[in-house]
Amino acid sequence: KRYRAVYDYSAADEDEVSFQDGDTIVNVQQIDDGWMYGTVERTGDTGMLPANYVEAI
């Protein structure tokens, strides 16, 4: 699945990823209600991200 960031996010922990509004997130997997795991296409960084900061595309 592919998602697009709708807000900027700065990683708060080493297992999270930072991204900017408009970034595409690929290979996304749902972890639980609030978190997903995926790769930021622009940077190649992979990690956890907050589900409410992205939307499906």
Rank of each mutant, 00 (worst) to 15 (best):
K1M: 13
K1W: 09
R2W: 08
R2F: 08
R2G: 06
R2S: 09
Y3W: 09
R4Q: 07
R4M: 08
A5D: 00
V6T: 09
V6Q: 07
V6R: 12
Y7L: 13
D8C: 13
D8W: 09
D8P: 14
Y9G: 00
S10Y: 13
S10C: 14
S10I: 14
A11E: 02
A11L: 03
A11M: 04
A12G: 10
A12C: 14
A12K: 14
D13L: 10
E14F: 11
E14K: 12
E14A: 12
D15Y: 14
D15G: 15
D15S: 15
D15R: 15
D15C: 15
D15F: 14
E16K: 10
E16Y: 09
E16D: 05
E16C: 11
V17E: 01
V17T: 04
S18L: 01
S18I: 02
F19Q: 00
F19D: 00
F19Y: 00
F19I: 05
F19K: 01
Q20I: 14
Q20W: 11
Q20T: 10
D21K: 15
D21I: 15
G22S: 05
G22F: 04
G22E: 03
D23N: 02
D23M: 03
T24L: 14
T24D: 07
T24A: 09
T24C: 12
I25E: 00
V26N: 07
V26T: 10
N27Q: 09
N27F: 10
V28K: 03
V28I: 08
V28E: 02
V28D: 01
Q29Y: 14
Q29T: 14
Q30E: 11
Q30M: 13
Q30I: 14
I31T: 07
I31C: 14
I31M: 12
D32S: 15
D32F: 12
D32G: 13
D32C: 14
D32Q: 11
D32I: 13
D32W: 11
D33E: 13
D33W: 09
G34A: 14
G34W: 14
G34K: 15
W35M: 06
M36L: 14
M36Y: 13
Y37F: 12
Y37P: 02
Y37S: 07
G38P: 02
G38M: 02
G38V: 03
G38N: 02
G38R: 00
T39V: 07
T39M: 08
V40C: 04
E41Y: 07
E41W: 08
E41P: 02
E41T: 07
E41K: 07
E41A: 08
R42F: 04
R42A: 06
R42L: 04
T43F: 02
T43M: 03
G44C: 08
D45A: 13
D45R: 12
D45I: 11
T46N: 06
T46Y: 08
G47N: 01
G47E: 01
G47L: 02
M48L: 14
M48R: 15
M48C: 11
M48I: 11
L49I: 14
L49M: 09
L49W: 04
L49A: 04
P50K: 08
P50H: 08
P50N: 07
P50F: 05
A51C: 10
A51T: 10
A51V: 10
A51D: 05
A51G: 07
N52C: 14
N52I: 13
Y53Q: 05
V54C: 04
V54D: 01
E55H: 09
A56D: 11
I57V: 10
I57C: 10
I57S: 06
